[in-house]
Write a protein that binds this DNA or RNA. Structure first.
Lengths: 118, 118
DNA sequence: TCCTATACATCGGACTTCGATGTATGTTCG
DNA sequence: CGAACATACATCGAAGTCCGATGTATAGGA
């Protein structure tokens, strides 16, 4: 039993994580729509600025996430050489834009509903 | 490959789910704080009313969730007999109240940050 | 020279969510 | 009367997510 007499510290950390991680896909799509094509590292940097360092997936998570978004056809990726070095850029697709628009409504609704709970 | 030429429908469903499920623990704690002791089924009913049927975990999820909250000491459960029938009630603990208070701040902050993104 | 930042990617482990399945009793309605 | 639905509990397997560790490589600054 690793978690015993937790006094809420681990629990809080975990629940905070749960709250935040649900928005990762939404945020990645948002930043790609807003800033244009970016590579993985730049996406993370962008999210750091956007959220004051708080809504940023780990690197492992981000690459899994991008893979998943690609699988669903919401982003596409292409490789380029920048200064002789390989870079993989991501671009939001038309399908991605549509999904993002719906997600914005969802987030809006969520905010209203949570406002009632608070 | 089950997901191919998705055109965004499955993706949207999945991303919506991700957005919502992060709030389940928060909502369960909220409803227990607000309504007092409840059993599993009543928690689900309560969330249905609170969220117009939209922020409601499946039964399987709810029982897993309650188990997890219990493990962290955020809720405690006790068995009662109501009309000759077994019922398991859940109650938020002091630790749970403290964590919930912090989560409320978190949600508040999240709403503000997302407001900027929208 | 060493550390940090940039940049990519994979892997295992822990955990979550869902839907299916199973067990019961109570109520309602045709 | 009998079927269907609501109430109520719980478990299981499958799929997926997130993290942190690990690994590779270059550039630039202290």
């Amino acid at each position: 039993m690793p978690v015993f007499r937790d006094n809420g510290k681990n629990a809080l950390k975990k629940l905070r994580k749960d709250l935040r991680s649900g928005f990762y896909s939404f945020l990645v799509l948002s930043i790609l729509e807003r800033e244009g094509d970016l590579h993985g590292y730049a996406i993370r940097k962008g999210l750091e600025i956007l959220s004051e360092g708080k809504l940023v997936p780990s690197e492992g998570t981000l690459y899994d996430l991008l893979k998943s978004l690609r699988k669903y056809g919401l982003v596409e990726d292409f490789q380029t050489e920048v200064g002789g070095r390989f870079r993989r850029y991501y671009r939001i697709t038309d399908s991605g834009r549509k999904v993002l628009a719906e997600l914005k409504n969802e987030v809006q609704w969520l905010m209203e509903t949570l406002g009632k709970v608070l």
